[in-house]
């Protein structure tokens, strides 16, 4: 079982992570680098010294971007191992895993890991004001786990009580509220912050849908060879 999950998960994660990295370097990295010019003070947001809105041209940085590719593949491999493990668990309880519903699994993963936390703790472009890291990480994990449990109940729940729990699990982290900074003093233009958050969510949706699709494909085809 462990070897089957590792095989499907690592392949699906590596491929989806590579695609995520390409999309990241194409659509997210230029916004991130632009924001870093404001973070470092090279560009200034307010007043007469306000920098031009046009995005400066950025070249590829082999080491930095290479590390991003590696860490993107690693991160999605981690997500994939959890996703495929959950697929195996569901299959053990009678669920059927396929390419088509694998994509839904991926979208559910996107909601749990990216969309639900982002609803109150939006993806941060470098330079934005933020609360301390530890409370934010704790809130992030709690929210991702709660939303993941909600996705599971939404898919496999069979009673009104389960669906009620879905609503509570999805709303509670936001009713409690994410840790917020004492003041909004970030030097980065809000336009860049908004573009960054939107791009992160868009790239994440594509990468997660692909991750789920590949996980479903590999897991169900391993099922056939195993039986």
């Amino acid at each position: 079982m462990l070897v089957r999950i590792l095989t499907s998960g690592l392949i699906a994660g590596a491929v989806a992570g590579l695609c995520a990295a390409v999309l990241h370097l194409t659509f997210i990295q230029p916004v991130l680098l632009h924001a870093e010019l404001y973070e470092s003070g090279e560009l200034v947001h307010f007043g007469a010294a306000s920098g031009p809105a046009a995005r400066p041209g950025f070249g590829l940085d082999p080491v930095r971007d290479g590390l991003s590719v590696i860490f993107s593949m690693l991160t999605y491999a981690g997500f994939a191992l959890i996703l495929v493990a959950l697929m195996a668990l569901a299959e053990g309880h009678g669920a059927v895993i396929s390419v088509r519903n694998g994509m839904l699994w991926g979208v559910a993963g996107f909601v749990a890991v990216l969309l639900a936390p982002a609803f109150s703790l939006p993806p941060e472009v470098p330079g934005v004001a933020a609360a301390d890291i530890l409370p934010r990480q704790a809130w992030w994990f709690a929210t991702a786990i709660a939303a993941g449990a909600a996705m599971w109940l939404l898919a496999f729940g069979r009673s009104w009580r389960a669906w009620g729990a879905v609503v509570v699990l999805l709303l509670a982290p936001h009713a409690i509220g994410a840790p917020e900074p004492d003041s909004f003093a970030g030097p980065v233009p809000t336009e860049l912050g908004a573009l960054f958050a939107a791009r992160v969510l868009g790239v994440g949706l594509v990468a997660w849908a692909l991750l789920g699709l590949l996980s479903g494909l590999l897991w169900s085809s391993e099922d056939e060879t195993a039986s």
């Binding site: 995520a20 990295a21 990241h24 997210i28 990295q29 991130l32 930095r64 971007d65 590390l67 991003s68 860490f71 993107s72 690693l74 991160t75 491999a77 981690g78 997500f79 191992l81 959890i82 990216l114 936390p117 982002a118 703790l121 939006p122 993806p123 941060e124 472009v125 470098p126 933020a130 890291i133 934010r136 990480q137 992030w140 960054f196 992160v200 969510l201 790239v203 994440g204």
Partner: peptide
């Protein structure tokens, strides 16, 4: 793996994974 790539604050790891952490909505 996700905790290592996305959340551990050790300096070297943080620098190497910095852009990916931001690009995946992890608190950085």
């Amino acid at each position: 793996i996700v905790v290592l790539t996305g959340h551990v604050q050790a300096d070297a790891l943080h620098s190497a994974a910095h852009d990916v952490r931001h690009a995946n909505g992890f608190p950085c």
